[in-house]
Design a protein around this nucleic acid. Structure first.
Length: 575
DNA sequence: GCCGTTTTCGGCCCGACTGTTTTCAGTCG
C-alpha cells in the first residue's frame, strides 16, 4: 500500500522524535526533520516520482540513506529503523515532547524514573507529587508539568489568522503607546501570513529604557506569565493564546525583526549563508568579528549577506534565498492588482444582499467587474437555481448592466460537480453565461482515483471555466479531498481553464504550495471572495496573503486582468 | 545524516530564560 507524502513526512518526524528521546546525534535528528519538511512540501506524490525513476537524493538535504528510507516508507508504510525505535520505546512517548517545557532529555528521564508513557500518566504522576522527587526536577517544574499536561489534554489551539490579526492589533496599539517604544510590530507566522497561528510574536524597538516588558506581563488580559526577563517575556492570555514579546534597541530593529519573523528554517539558512561569508547574524545585527555592520533595517541585513530583500510571506526556506541571490524573486501580487471578483452570491441563492448591493460594494472597493455565481439546483440547502431561475437572473443582469456604466456584472453560476463528474445544469443554459464556476459540494470522501476522474470529467465540459475551492477543505473542520492536483492542473492548461484561490478564511483553498504548482504548470489562479454578503469582500486580502505565500505575481492571477482583457479569455472557454 | 569554489572529515545557527545540579543544562523560539 503506497504511502502519501504526508504519511511519509509523519514517519520521518516520528523517527526524529524517537531518536531525540534516545539521545542520538542532534544533527542526524535534524536531517530527519528537514527531510520530513521537504517531503511534506513536494508538489508530487513520492510514489509517482519513484515510478518515474526520479532520484530522491537529488532533493536538498536528502542523501543516499534518507532516499532509501523514504523509498522504503513509500512502499511499505514504515521502515526498519522506525520499527526498531518503536520496539525500544513505548508507543506514544513522543507525544510527551509536545508538553511545553519538556524536551527529549527530560522526557527520557521521566520515562526511566517513573515509567510514564503518555500525557495522562505524566499528569497523574505530577498530581501525586512523584515528579518533584526526581533529580533535576523541583516543585516549580512539577507544577508547570501539571498545568501544561492539563492544557495539553484539551484541544489543539492554533487560531485562524484573522483572529490573530485582531488580538495582535489591539496589543500592538497598547505597546506603541508606552514610553520609550519607537515601533511595535508583529512578527512570526502572523507576519508570514500563515493560515493559522499558534502563538503571537510581537517586537518593539526602544529608545533608552522603557517599562514595556513589565507593563506587558501586567496587562489585564494576561492570565499567566511563562517567562519574564529584561528583553523578553511570554504570557498566556485569558483566551488561551500565548504571546511572546521581545524588546530590542533601535539599532537592532531590522535584525530582530528578521530573526523574530522566521521561519526557523529561513533563519538557519540565512545564518549559514552569513557564516560562509565570515559573518555572524544574531537578533542584534550582522557582525564581522566583534564589529557590527551598519544598518538597522531588514533590507540592510539581507544586503549584508548579498541578498535582495525577501518578503515575509516567502520566508519558508522553499527556494527564496537562492532566488534572492540570483535576483529572480517574484514581485508578489497585491490587493490593488485585483480588477474584479469572479465568485459571489446574492439573495437569489444563499447570499444575504441583492445583486445591486453587491455591485455597489464591489465598485466601492475599486473593482471593475463582478461575476454573480449562484449555487445550482442540487444544492437545495443553498436554494440553488434551476435553468428557469438562472435564465431570469441572466435577464436581470443584462438590464442592470445597461443602467450601470463603468461597472459590469458578469453572468455566471457555481454549478455543482456531481459525483460522476457531470454538471448539475444543462449546456443549453450554461452556454448563455459569461463563465461557469464548477465546485464539489458533496462526496468529498471519494477515493483519489475516483475524485480525480470526477474533476477531469467536469473540466471536459465545453463550458467549464473555473474550478472553485478545489480541495473542498474547511480549516480545522474538514480535510481536503484527495485528488491528483498535477493531473487536474495539466487538464486545466490543456482546456484553458483556471483554478480558484477561494479567499474565505475558513477555506484558503488553494493552499500556498498548490499555488506554486499552478504557477509552475502555467495555470492562472483566480482569487475570489466567494462573498455571501457585501461585508465579505473583506475576505479578498486573505486570498492575497495566501497567493503571496504561493509566490504568485500579478500576471499569475486571472482577475488582475481588466474587463477588456478578461472577456476574450473567458470567451475562449465558452466555445 | 548531509555536505564541500578552503573541506570526502569535521563541521552543522544563535541567544534568552528558567530552575536547580551552586555553575549550567535543558528548552524554546
Amino acid at each position: 500500500m503506497p504511502a502519501h507524502n504526508a504519511d511519509i513526512a509523519a514517519a520521518l518526524n516520528d523517527i526524529a522524535d524517537l531518536l531525540d528521546i534516545e539521545g542520538a546525534n542532534p544533527f542526524r535528528i535534524r536531517a530527519y526533520r528537514n527531510a520530513a519538511r521537504t517531503v511534506g512540501e513536494l508538489g508530487q506524490p513520492v510514489p509517482v516520482m519513484l515510478a518515474q525513476g526520479a532520484d530522491l537524493d537529488d532533493l536538498p538535504g536528502i542523501g543516499p540513506d534518507l532516499a532509501a528510507k523514504i523509498r522504503e516508507i513509500a512502499e511499505t508504510g514504515s521502515c526498519a529503523l522506525l520499527g526498531r525505535l518503536r520496539q525500544e520505546l513505548p508507543p506514544g512517548i513522543a507525544e510527551l515532547l509536545k508538553v511545553p517545557g519538556l524536551g527529549p532529555k527530560r522526557v527520557r528521564v521521566l520515562h526511566h524514573e517513573l515509567g510514564v508513557q503518555t500525557i495522562e500518566q505524566l499528569h497523574h504522576a505530577a498530581r501525586e507529587g512523584r515528579v518533584q522527587a526526581i533529580h533535576g526536577f523541583g516543585p516549580t517544574s512539577q507544577q508547570a508539568i501539571l498545568d501544561a499536561t492539563a492544557a495539553q489534554l484539551q484541544e489543539e489551539r492554533r487560531i485562524p489568522l484573522w483572529r490573530a490579526d485582531q488580538t495582535a492589533g489591539a496589543l500592538l496599539a497598547d505597546l506603541a503607546a508606552l514610553p520609550g517604544v519607537e515601533r511595535a510590530v508583529a512578527a512570526g507566522s502572523l507576519r508570514r501570513r500563515r493560515e493559522t497561528v499558534g502563538d503571537l510574536d510581537l517586537l518593539v524597538s526602544l529608545s533608552g529604557s522603557s517599562p514595556v516588558i513589565d507593563r506587558f506581563v501586567g496587562g489585564e488580559d494576561v492570565s499567566r506569565v511563562l517567562a519574564h526577563g529584561s528583553t523578553r517575556a511570554s504570557v498566556v492570555l485569558k483566551s488561551g493564546l500565548q504571546v511572546d514579546l521581545r524588546a530590542v534597541p533601535a539599532e537592532s530593529f531590522g535584525a530582530a525583526w528578521v530573526y523574530f519573523t522566521g521561519s526557523k528554517a529561513h533563519n538557519i539558512a540565512l545564518r549559514r549563508l552569513a557564516q560562509e561569508r565570515g559573518l555572524k547574524i544574531n537578533e542584534y545585527g550582522v557582525f564581522r568579528g566583534r564589529d557590527r555592520l551598519p544598518g538597522a533595517t531588514e533590507e540592510a541585513l539581507y544586503q549584508a549577506i548579498g541578498l535582495r530583500y525577501i518578503e515575509p510571506e516567502l520566508r519558508e526556506d522553499r527556494g527564496e534565498i537562492e532566488a534572492a541571490r540570483q535576483g529572480r524573486l517574484p514581485v508578489l501580487v497585491v490587493l490593488g492588482d485585483l480588477r474584479g471578483d469572479l465568485h459571489v452570491h446574492t439573495s437569489e441563492s444563499d447570499g444575504q444582499d441583492s445583486l445591486e448591493a453587491m455591485a455597489v460594494a464591489a465598485r466601492a472597493r475599486g473593482l471593475q467587474y463582478l461575476a454573480v455565481t449562484e449555487h445550482s439546483r442540487s444544492l437545495g440547502v443553498a436554494h440553488g437555481v434551476d435553468p428557469a431561475r438562472l435564465a431570469r437572473q441572466i435577464d436581470r443582469i443584462d438590464r442592470f448592466n445597461e443602467q450601470s456604466p463603468g461597472f459590469t456584472v458578469l453572468k455566471g453560476v457555481e454549478v455543482d460537480i456531481l459525483e460522476d463528474g457531470t454538471l448539475d445544469l444543462p449546456d443549453t443554459i450554461l452556454q448563455r453565461l459569461d463563465l461557469v464556476v464548477g465546485a464539489v459540494h458533496h462526496r468529498f470522501d471519494l477515493p483519489r482515483a475516483q475524485q480525480t476522474a470526477r474533476l477531469l470529467r467536469a473540466m471536459d465540459s465545453r463550458y467549464f471555466t473555473l474550478l472553485a475551492h478545489p480541495g473542498g477543505r474547511l480549516i480545522g473542520e474538514r480535510p481536503a479531498c484527495d485528488f491528483d492536483l498535477l493531473r487536474v492542473l495539466r487538464k486545466a492548461r490543456e482546456r484553458g481553464c483556471f483554478l480558484e484561490l477561494n479567499a474565505q478564511p475558513a477555506r484558503l483553498d488553494l493552499t500556498d504550495t498548490a499555488c506554486q504548482m499552478a504557477k509552475a504548470e502555467g495555470v492562472l489562479v483566480c482569487i475570489n471572495s466567494d462573498a455571501h454578503s457585501t461585508l465579505e469582500f473583506n475576505h479578498l486580502p486573505s486570498g492575497i496573503d495566501q497567493a503571496r505565500r504561493g509566490w504568485l505575481e500579478k500576471a499569475d492571477v486571472l482577475n488582475t486582468l481588466t474587463l477588456e482583457d478578461l472577456r476574450p479569455v473567458l470567451a475562449g472557454t465558452m466555445q
